[in-house]
Design a binder for these strands. Structure first.
Lengths: 267, 267
DNA sequence: CAGTGGTCTAGACCACTGG
DNA sequence: CAGTGGTCTAGACCACTGC
């Protein structure tokens, strides 16, 4: 039998830390094995070895591939599941998280109706106002880690619940990963925008940061949301990130909060 | 030697679930050992066997007390640490989380200055406007799981950053657990209000839910926050819970968002 | 140095899913 | 029934803290 199979990267040793920049850290920064395994799985996710919704190999398989025990793989997967990158299902397997499944649809939308459950109003009506190519201003570029003047796609849309326009959003996306995105494709797609990003552009949004403010409605916004001038709106600025903390979307939303509210849990 | 030490509750068996109501559940609802251990630790926390800031017994001690392996105790503590009820410190021990430690002060306050780091403005100035006993209205009572007309304490205060009044808060507390709370004690205490609740009233806030809205400033609020009539304010309604999901505080805050914003991370 | 939490392993067994 | 994730154990060793 020819041995030395080692289908993975080089030897893994607890304590060897490859991610330290020269002189940035005095201590060698001990990195446990399971963290390195986590990094390897993360790489496979980023490179698309397993697509959103698909099952990843079983814990035993991964343990064999990485030449560690099942328990070590398990701990790596545990953390990835805690970060909502993977979803475990007892008896079935471990799956790459996706925005397309019913249960976690609109996971990033924290606006809920004042009465009733989050999905009780039925599906939101989505109207694309515009979708055009433009050049990134300084602040847009900074948010997306681009250079000022780089090409970006700008989408403006209105979400309506039970017939009432409730959310006005401006969305900026880097042009390169989203080449070919048009108003038509957005309008025709059923389901969350982030699910479309996954299937059509292989971009999975993993994490986001939001800044909230109360702002008066100004011309343009008051028309699209059918509120009167100066009505307080909840301003929500979001930067969404893919794997490895790469920013892939800037979104500026204006929420009406007369029938809905932004819900948050503090742990 | 007299044996039979068993200082804990009765026998623990994986699969025995004591929390099921009669007929409420068809399946016996398998409950793993570590979940039962978690419940026992939770009881000790609730009963004050270990106070906030103190160390709990070592994993080995707890394993001996509950007559399970260290790994099982470890998994229970892992979950409690993930829920911010305990804090692990390698080499030192595991400690009951507290709102009094520098690192996690104002963990529930999500308003941060637009520029600079969260604590960069120095300590907030806190002015107690009033603190009085009153009767719970229907909605206050519902939020605190009391009956309408029950006695509650109402506190109104203003938080100022860099000299500017920024937050106006009305706080309602059930009278019984907070007997003896006065404006003086609030005014004299240095540090977060939730730290005072821990040391003086043995109430530890563990979790909270917030509802956010944009609302115009009305008379009273506009005076205290020094904004003009109708200025949009971020309205934040919070219900804070102790152990076992018991509601212990209702808070209605109004935040100025001209120099600060509410920051949130979506996982 | 002893004591703590943290990692890693190996193996047994359990609960759940699907064919 | 085989295959998956989930639990539990026992033991070895490592990293960190403080005396």
């Amino acid at each position: 039998m020819s041995s030395i199979p080692t289908p993975s990267a080089g030897n893994l040793v607890p304590g060897s830390d490859s991610g330290t920049l020269a002189g940035a850290q005095v201590t060698p920064a001990f990195s446990p094995l399971y963290q390195q395994i986590k990094g390897l799985i993360l790489n496979s996710l980023r490179l698309g070895e397993w697509k959103p919704g698909e099952a990843i190999p079983s814990e035993m398989e991964l343990a064999a591939r990485f030449r560690v025990s099942q328990g070590t793989v398990r701990k790596a997967i545990d953390e990835l599941a805690a970060e909502n990158l993977l979803v475990r299902q007892q008896g079935k397997g471990t799956f790459v998280a996706t925005h397309a499944t019913k249960q976690v649809q609109f996971r990033f939308l924290k606006l809920v109706p004042d009465s009733g459950t989050p999905g009780s109003e039925g599906p939101a009506q989505r109207d694309i106002i515009e979708c055009r190519r433009t050049r990134a201003s300084a602040d847009i570029a900074r948010a997306l880690a681009l250079r000022t003047g780089d090409t970006v796609l700008q989408v403006r849309r209105v979400l309506s619940f039970a017939g009432s326009p409730t959310i006005l959003e401006d969305i900026w996306l880097p042009a390169t990963p989203f080449k070919g995105l048009t108003a038509e494709r957005l309008a025709n797609y059923q389901g969350p925008m982030y699910a479309l990003f996954e299937t059509e552009f292989n971009v999975r949004m993993v994490r986001a940061e939001e800044k909230l403010r109360a702002e008066p409605a100004v011309e343009g916004r008051e028309l699209l949301l059918k509120v009167s001038h100066g009505t307080p709106l909840l301003s929500v600025e979001r930067i969404a990130y893919t794997y490895k903390d790469v920013p892939m979307e800037l979104r500026r939303g204006y929420y009406r909060t007369d029938t809905h509210h932004y819900h948050n849990t503090l742990g």
